[in-house]
Nucleic acid binder design. Structure first.
Lengths: 208, 208
DNA sequence: TAGATTGTTAATCGATTAACAATC
DNA sequence: TAGATTGTTAATCGATTAACAATC
């Protein structure tokens, strides 16, 4: 709530703004103008001002924006001020690799549980729970997001289990389009698609 | 070459078309109309016909499209008919997980080499080469694509090494925007961004 | 103050959708 | 043939960019 609905294009740009502002803060820069940021990020200054116009910060004519204010505002808009409880479902190669991801180290996302059908030893200090304990776990922990890393052929069935257990948001690594109720949000990560797009661009590079 | 340049939106849709057509083939369906496909993929039939109009296949009025022809055409457009030689640079958690990815099993992408700074045992039958052997390897194997999975703080430096060694296309898993020459193509996979977008949508779900 | 930069409105651009004549 | 569906053009929609008055 708050700002009117943002376009999907703008939403997709937010994490990038956030990252650059984080960089500015880390090097101790206190203010930034749309022109500077535009140069750095390789987008138009006009777009930046337009985007920022959706939020409740304001810059100062002749000066620019306060980096910290902007950072905090975008953090708020992205909902990163409220920590999200995350579970990983599927502890194969991919799931294992995600467990140690930096985003789970105090970056707004807290990894609370790891699940798999197979029994296996703890990973990185995380116990791996059997999938049938999902519903109880979700109820008890109020999990916000599920990361789905099971083999693709099991994606649909496990997604259903997760949704039935009450999850409303899924980051989907399976190479299928999940069929979920309207009130469940899915973000897909399809590495093969990314590679195909790269292959296309590679084959169709403007020839020198 | 061939078709005029396609919009980035259309390029991004191609892998999805390809996947659905693959599904049709696998269940033995021989023809499909824009209307059916539209229903299945949840896009407008108009968009499908518009998109397909860029290619050198044609449907048949009153009938639809031949699935195999369409599949082959999109495969060709994506450049999947010419196998791409791929290397993975960085054999940490993420790199290791990628080595066994299905896309390297006869899907148009051939994993030819794995590199890391650290010495380590073979992974999944792949020898891990030291990064300083990159230039020689690329020259010898004519590698097309590099997948960059080193720790983010090393992304820029390793990207430079890879580019200097002659690579023109990078799938970048590092959480930085790579600064590469114009003639080098980069596709970013920023999982944290995906998670942030998911978090945003989750917090801003239309309330029931 | 003069210069810089915002915030916002209008112009442009391009993608998506609608419509329908052509035709299998 | 009649019905279905394409291919394509025109209409619509929305995002990006340009422009500039307001103002710090």
């Amino acid at each position: 709530m708050g700002e009117k609905t943002l376009s999907k294009e703008l939403i997709a740009r937010l994490p990038r703004y956030f990252r650059y502002l984080d960089d500015y803060m880390n090097v101790g820069i206190k203010k930034v103008s749309s022109g500077e940021l535009s140069h750095k990020m390789n987008v138009t200054a006009s777009q930046i001002r337009h985007d920022l116009g959706h939020f409740t910060i304001s810059g100062q004519q002749g000066y620019g924006y306060n980096v910290r204010e902007l950072y905090d505002e975008i953090k708020r808009v992205l909902g990163l001020d409220k920590e999200k409880k995350v579970m990983i479902v599927g502890a194969g190669n991919r799931g294992k690799a995600l467990i140690s991801h930096r985003m789970f180290r105090n970056r707004g996302f807290k990894l609370e549980g790891v699940f798999d059908i197979a029994e296996m030893p703890d990973i990185n200090g995380y116990h791996v729970f059997p999938i049938n304990e999902l519903p109880e776990f979700i109820k008890e922990h109020n999990t916000d997001l599920a990361i789905l890393c099971v083999p693709s052929q099991e994606g649909s069935i496990v997604a259903k289990q997760v949704v039935d257990a009450g999850i409303k948001a899924i980051l989907n690594f399976c190479y299928v389009d999940l069929d979920v109720p309207e009130d469940v949000i899915v973000e897909n990560v399809h590495l093969r698609d990314n590679l195909m797009v790269l292959a296309y661009k590679y084959d169709n590079m403007p020839k020198e």
